[in-house]
Simulated scan of single mutants.
Amino acid sequence: MRMPKLSCHKATGQARVRLNGRDFYCGTFGSAQADLRYLELLRQYRAGELPAAPPAKSAKIPAGESTTPDLTKGSPRTVELLAARYVTDHARVHYRHPDGRPTTEQEGLKRALAWLTRCPEGKLPPDQFGPRALKSIRAAMVESGRLSRKTVNQHIGRIRRMFRWAASEELVKVEVFSALATVQGLQRGRTVAPDHPPRTPVAWEDVEKTLPYLPAPMRALVLVQWHCGARGGELLIMRPCDIDRTSEIWEYTPPTHKGAWRGKGRLILLGREAQAILLPLLAVKAPTEHVFSPRDSRERSGVGDVYDNNAYSKWVRQAAKQAGAKHWSPHMLRHAYGTRVRAVAGIEQARVLLGHASCVTSEIYARADVESVRGIVQQLG
C-alpha cells in the first residue's frame, strides 16, 4: 500500500498530508517536528486509530507553544522515528554538494528508510532492533521482487549507517550498531534476489537512431558525452566559465563531481569533435549560464535552468524506445568511450580519461597523467 506524502500548504507554510479524505497539518514544512508528526499519523492510519483532522493553524506559532513533540529532545521511541531524526539532523546536511544541491544518496537513503515504515520491525524501540530484525527487513526487500541483490545490500548498508550515526549521537547503545555490523551482505548465487547483467557499451547505431527523438539540448549533450566519456552529471552542470579554451585540447573542470568530497580533482579533456558541438552553444551563453538547459528546448523537462540526471536518463530511455533502438542509458556512453580508448591506447589511459585515478595520487602525477593522454584525445577526436 502506497503511503500518502507530505506536501506544503502554501497559505500557512505547514506540512500537510491527506488521509481518509481529510487533511492533517503536521507543523512547519521541512521541520523535524513535521516529520515526526507525519510518521505518527501513518502509524495511526495503518492501525485504524486515526484521530479527527484538526483545523489548519497559522505557521506562526506563539513562543513556548508547539503542536508536536520536540524531536531534538531524548531518544526516539521507535526505529522509524529514529530514521526521521537521522534524515533531518544529518542526511539533509551531510549528503549535499558544495553548491548546496542534494546528492543522489539522499534519494537512495529515502528509499532505504521507507522500508522501516512498511515493515513491523520499524515499530521496535531502537535498542531492541537487532540482526534478526534487520534480516527480516532484508527478506521483505527480496520478497518484493523489485530490487536487485546489489540494491538490497546498499539499502541494508544505509540502515546500518543510520545506527552508526545514532550510536555516535548517544541515541542508541554502541552494542546495537556492533550487532547489526555482523549481518553480512547477500552473496551472488546464494540468494533469490536477481543480479543485473553487467553494463555494456552502447553501439553508435543505437545512439544515432535515438538522436532525432531527443530535445535539441539533449542531442548535443549525448554527442558531447559520446566524444569525451564524462559522467552525465558532470556535463549537466557545465558552464562556459568552467572551460579553458586556450589550447588545442580544451580543458573542462566541473564545479563539482563524484570524488570532490575526497579531495580529488577532475579534469575533462575535450577534443575537436566535442568542441565542434559546443562552439555554437557557447557563443550564445553567458559565462555562468548552463550550456545544456531546458530553457533552450520546447520540451521543458528540467527544473529551472538545468536538467538533472533523472530527466536525462528518462529522455534517453523514452527516445530509444520511440526510435526502435536497443535499450540504453547515458552511462553506457561513458562505457563506449572507455572501450574505444582502451582499444587504442590501453587500460591505463582509459583510467585517466574516465577520472578513475587513485585519490592518493599527488597533483604532480595527476597532471603528468593528463599530459600523457592528450595525444589519445587528438587521435579519437
Rank of each mutant, 00 (worst) to 15 (best):
P4Q: 05
Q14D: 06
A34Q: 05
L36I: 13
L41M: 06
E49L: 05
P54E: 00
A56Q: 08
K60V: 13
A63E: 15
T72Q: 11
R77D: 13
E80L: 09
T88C: 09
R92F: 11
H94Q: 07
E107H: 11
W115S: 00
K123M: 08
P125T: 14
Q128S: 13
L134N: 05
R138I: 08
A139I: 03
V142H: 08
E143Q: 11
V152L: 04
R160T: 09
W165G: 00
E175N: 06
F177T: 03
S178Q: 15
T182Q: 10
Q184W: 03
G189Q: 10
A193V: 07
H196R: 15
P201G: 03
W204M: 04
E205D: 05
P212A: 06
L214S: 01
L214Y: 06
A216T: 13
R219S: 09
Q225P: 00
H227A: 08
C228F: 11
E234W: 10
L236Y: 13
M238D: 06
C241L: 05
E248M: 08
Y252Q: 14
R266C: 11
L267I: 15
A276G: 04
I277F: 05
A283Q: 15
V291F: 04
P294S: 01
D296M: 04
S301Q: 09
Y307N: 02
D308G: 15
D308F: 11
A325K: 00
W328V: 10
H331K: 07
Y337N: 03
T339V: 08
V341H: 01
A343W: 05
V344G: 02
I347M: 13
L353E: 03
G355I: 06
S358G: 11
C359E: 13
A368E: 15
V370R: 11
